[in-house]
């Protein structure tokens, strides 16, 4: 991270907000359907590298902030396209954020709820100003302004940025000792546009002869029935770390059913090679792969490589022992 060359390589995705911002910028605004892949190979966000460093809450923060940005952008586009005073149902779409099981949902929810209750006062000045304006606008909310501010998600978004940025780790207890709780109406934390759910609920699905049947059954009761109820509301499905065979099978089923009408985002997925047929056309929107290079006959690993994809091309950056910062080595 100390060698990162921001002017060449873009925003450093070392905080959930920075990652969400950088990745959101790699989506084209007209991409409203189809499957996109985010491939962020940082150990705390990447279950493919093992569970030792992986932080499910941090990964959920990135996903949450990213889909929030995309949904907001879509909403802004739709509002621009329509009369701003008449917000159509299509201008208030929502996202479904999927994780593996209910235990993961519960641990993420616990941290998010805790954060919602304990805002800190060490926000940046800009965030303070934004929040002051938001509070003023909310306190002025009445019938005349209802049309303009009919959805407080915008303000919830700013607050969730502040919350995420203010926490150095996502541990459930991280805010206990150091952070001073701020009195705040927790109802202003808007989660209405992001629904966190699990693929399989409480079901434990292992590989075996009845795997497919179990996957379909669990998917039906946890995701498909919900999407059926909300089909006019939800336009984005994001799944964090589908890495096991049952999860990939579930994703393939969802892609088959919804990819033509919804935007599906897979964050750090792992598929067998060759890719499953349903995912052949999935596009890698953003990829960051850090490596250390060493000669075959040496243990010395002073050369750092980052393979990065932000738009169409893949770039390779290098920083050896003599370089202070990464320089661009090649474009593929």
């Amino acid at each position: 991270e100390t060698s990162w060359n921001q002017s060449l390589m873009g925003n450093i995705p070392t905080t959930p907000m920075a990652a969400a911002q950088e990745i959101a910028d790699c989506f084209f605004t007209h991409e409203n359907a189809g499957v996109s892949i985010i491939d962020l190979q940082l150990p705390s966000l990447d279950l493919r590298q093992g569970a030792r460093w992986y932080d499910a809450v941090l990964a959920a923060d990135v996903a949450h902030l990213l889909v929030e940005r995309l949904v907001q952008r879509q909403r802004d586009n739709n509002v621009d396209a329509n009369d701003t005073n008449k917000q159509t149902p299509s201008s208030s779409k929502k996202a479904l954020l999927l994780v593996r099981d209910e235990a993961t949902v519960r641990s993420i929810e616990r941290v998010w709820e805790k954060r919602a209750l304990s805002f800190t006062e060490d926000d940046t000045e800009e965030e303070e100003n934004d929040e002051e304006e938001d509070e003023q606008e909310m306190s002025n909310n009445n019938e005349e302004t209802t049309v303009l501010y009919d959805d407080f998600a915008d303000f919830g978004f700013l607050e969730s940025i502040a919350a995420v940025e203010s926490l150095s780790t996502s541990s459930p207890n991280a805010s206990d000792s150091q952070q001073k709780p701020r009195k705040r109406n927790t109802e202003t934390i808007d989660r209405r546009r992001i629904q966190l759910q699990s693929l399989f609920g409480e079901a434990i699905i292992s590989e075996g002869a009845d795997m497919e049947q179990k996957v379909i059954r669990a998917l039906q009761s946890n995701v498909v029935s919900y999407l059926k109820e909300q089909q006019d509301e939800i336009d984005t499905i994001a799944m964090i770390a589908p890495v096991t065979r049952p999860e990939v099978m579930a994703i393939c089923a969802l892609v088959q059913k919804y990819a033509k009408t919804m935007r599906i985002i897979l964050i750090n997925p792992h598929f067998a090679k060759p890719r499953p047929m349903e995912l052949q056309h999935a596009k890698t929107v953003y990829s960051l792969r850090p490596f250390l290079v060493r000669a075959k006959d040496s243990r010395k690993t002073l050369t750092k490589i980052v393979v990065l994809k932000r738009k169409q091309e893949w770039e390779v950056f290098i920083s050896d022992s003599a370089s202070e910062q990464f320089e661009r080595l090649a474009v593929n």
Partner: peptide
């Protein structure tokens, strides 16, 4: 998906050799 590790390694090797030659 993406460049092969062999290609990345070859780029790095070329770069490091060039750097060594310069120094």
């Amino acid at each position: 998906d993406g460049p092969s590790m062999e290609w990345v390694a070859a780029c790095a090797q070329q770069y490091l050799q060039q750097k060594n030659a310069e120094s």
